[in-house]
């Protein structure tokens, strides 16, 4: 049997109490922070997983924020396009009216002067800018207006598209981009056609029954219809894009939820289990302390 020195019992007791106290400290920290792992060394693998999940979450949060901003931006685009579309419809009505052979020169002149504000409205809307003064419909050349009006040029060539047809691509996923803008090159053609028609119809003594004038009006009506079709198509494609973005947003929310659930199951402390452990250690420490106080009373010196 091993000989036991008096201090061995004390040393053993102090080691046991220290170990238990360290464990209680760790459990208390877990309960206080709500985190299962308070240092990477407690479970390096789980730490790496948690780190990846939190990075994923950060990415998704940014993508979702981009999607929301992009959806707003597309809605703004859509409302501008609707306004243009309404103007085009009004212009179409006026031109159909102008094609009526019973109109006299005064009637045509009145129609022509009604066309003027519509053209101004279309030009103004096509050259819309965002809050920072960047042009919305000029492709990626956001510092130049989409349509430039040069009053000195010949009629029919006074409007030019000064943007480009390139798309601004917004990151809405890892390696996934969606266009944030639409360019309106067709508006220059339309405005030039309307300009020509307006100028012709407002000429004194214009007769709509001459082949030149009626041909021009008919061609302009065709042009307006083409432009309307093109704008309507763009509006429809914006709607489609909105749908794609909504779907992506929902998917991201699902992924985020799954990630968060995994984060919780990996990284969040199990309160019940941890509290039970803590109670276990507390009981053990109390028992050890009582045992120590009892056993240390035993000494032969007390009786000799």
């Amino acid at each position: 049997m091993m000989r036991i020195a008096t201090n061995q019992y004390r040393d053993m007791m102090s080691t046991a109490l220290q170990t238990a106290t360290a464990q209680m400290d760790a459990l208390n920290l877990q309960l206080a922070t709500g985190e299962q792992y308070t240092a990477p060394s407690q479970d390096p693998v789980a730490t790496v997983q948690l780190d990846r999940l939190s990075r994923n979450e950060a990415d998704i949060t940014q993508y979702q924020s981009n999607i929301t901003t992009l959806q707003n931006k597309l809605s703004v685009n859509e409302s501008y396009l609707n306004s243009i579309s309404n103007d085009i419809l009004s212009a179409h009505d006026l031109l159909v009216q102008a094609a009526n052979g019973s109109n006299n020169a005064a009637d045509e002149s009145a129609i022509a002067s009604s066309l003027q504000p519509l053209m101004q409205s279309m030009l103004y809307t096509a050259n819309s800018t965002d809050a920072e003064g960047h042009y919305i419909f000029s492709g990626t050349m956001t510092n130049t207006p989409a349509i430039t009006y040069n009053p000195a040029a010949a009629i029919g060539a006074r409007y030019t598209f000064t943007g480009n047809a390139n798309q601004q691509l917004v990151a809405v996923g890892s390696g996934v981009t969606q266009p944030a803008n639409v360019a309106l090159p067709q508006m220059a053609t339309l405005l030039n056609q309307l300009d020509t028609a307006q100028s012709t119809l407002s000429a004194p003594g214009v007769n709509v029954n001459t082949p030149a004038v009626s041909g021009l009006v008919a061609a302009t009506i065709t042009g307006v219809e083409t432009a309307l079709g093109s704008i309507s198509g763009t509006i429809a494609s914006l709607g489609g894009e909105q749908n794609i973005l909504s779907t992506m947003n929902t998917n991201f929310s699902d992924i985020n939820l799954t990630d968060q659930q995994e984060s919780v199951s990996l990284g969040q402390v199990n309160y019940a289990a941890t509290y039970t452990q803590l109670t276990g250690y507390t009981t053990a420490v109390q028992a050890a302390q009582q045992a120590y106080s009892q056993v240390s009373k035993l000494s032969l010196f007390n009786v000799v």
Binding site: D59, Y63, N66, K73, H134, Q168, A171, A180
Partner: peptide, 19 residues
Amino acid sequence: LDGFSSALNAASEDPSSDP
């Protein structure tokens, strides 16, 4: 790194935006 990447991603909304 996450913050920097987020800022770049956000800038793709409007690459010419000063803010």
